[in-house]
């Protein structure tokens, strides 16, 4: 398959990934409501915390509150609590429906990446913009300065989605062997919740735990895009931040290809 034809196919897959979520408008509105309520609760908690410890983790109060709302805004897009398309893939492996995916002349991982990018794009708009807008009416937020800063942020989010997908895809592939993916999915969601910075910004954690947490791939899902949004990188620092995300994306997608080829060659495809 030519590169262009391939790119067009996966773009078409991504568009369908977007559309299928766009069909469920009421569910999206309910999600926006939950995000917003939750955002208010956490934002007030952070306000209390930062008034006791100003400049905790290097953030001033508006930055800390903005961090909270970025967490709510990216919650679905970069699947900070899990909940991307991985549970669907796990179910397809368990039921054997993955046989159909494997009968297509397409790369399984790129196919699912494309659907997940479509899903993320929808959730960035559907579940990200509205809570952020609601928050800006109540809180003083720290916005990026200028078009370049916004551009870097969007690139960072896109890379965050890819890293997030690559991790979740690896986790989902384990169900070729384990057959029941519920346990590993829950574990992966817990790790993502903490190590992305969703509980507290990773810069708050001192010592080796903080260093480790910031070096692990999950930080690409929230910590890095948030710092890019807040303009915490000076000069070429932004490029290094994006390179950090891109590096993890390449490594993890590569690992996914490897595990996928072992899984599909060695393992039984379930069901008659």
């Amino acid at each position: 398959m030519g590169v262009r034809g391939g790119a067009r196919l996966y773009a078409a897959v991504a568009v369908r990934g977007f559309r299928r979520y766009a069909t469920y408008r009421v569910a999206t509105l309910a999600g926006v409501f939950t995000n917003t309520v939750f955002g208010f609760v956490v934002a007030y908690t952070y306000t209390a915390l930062w008034s006791v410890r100003p400049r905790l983790g290097g953030y001033d109060l508006p930055q800390a509150v903005t961090f909270v709302w970025l967490g709510q805004g990216l919650l679905m897009a970069t699947a900070l609590l899990g909940g991307g398309n991985e549970s669907e893939l796990v179910e397809r492996i368990r039921s054997g429906d993955v046989a159909i995916d494997l009968c297509r002349p397409a790369n399984l991982q790129l196919w699912w990446l494309a659907t997940d990018l479509g899903r993320a794009a929808f959730h960035l708009v559907g579940r990200g913009v509205l809570p952020m807008a609601a928050a800006s009416l109540v809180f003083r937020l720290a916005w990026p300065s200028g078009v370049a800063a916004w551009g870097c942020f969007l690139v960072s989010v896109a890379l965050g989605v890819v890293v997030s997908f690559a991790i979740r895809y690896l986790v989902a592939l384990t169900s070729f062997w384990l057959l029941d993916g519920a346990g590993v999915l829950l574990m992966a969601a817990l790790l993502a919740t903490f190590f992305s910075g969703m509980v507290l910004p990773l810069t708050v954690f001192p010592g080796w735990l903080g260093t480790l947490a910031r070096a692990l791939p999950w930080s690409a899902q929230l910590q890095v895009p948030a710092d890019v949004f807040l303009g915490r990188h000076r000069g070429t620092g932004v490029l290094w931040a994006l390179a950090f995300q891109a590096g993890w994306a390449v490594v993890l997608l590569g690992a996914g290809q490897l595990v996928q080829s072992v899984a599909t060659r060695k393992v039984v495809v379930q069901g008659g």
């Binding site: 078409a12 897959v13 369908r16 559309r19 069909t23 054997g96 046989a99 159909i100 297509r104 002349p105």
Partner: peptide
């Protein structure tokens, strides 16, 4: 895969949430 067609009666290759036409358009691209 480009030269064969497969129908598993108990499974579907179609996109559950989308109009049927969308799945066919994607088949065209695949």
């Amino acid at each position: 895969a480009r030269r064969i067609g497969v129908v598993f009666g108990q499974r579907t290759t179609l996109w559950w949430d989308l109009p049927l036409r969308d799945s066919y358009e994607l088949v065209r691209r695949i």
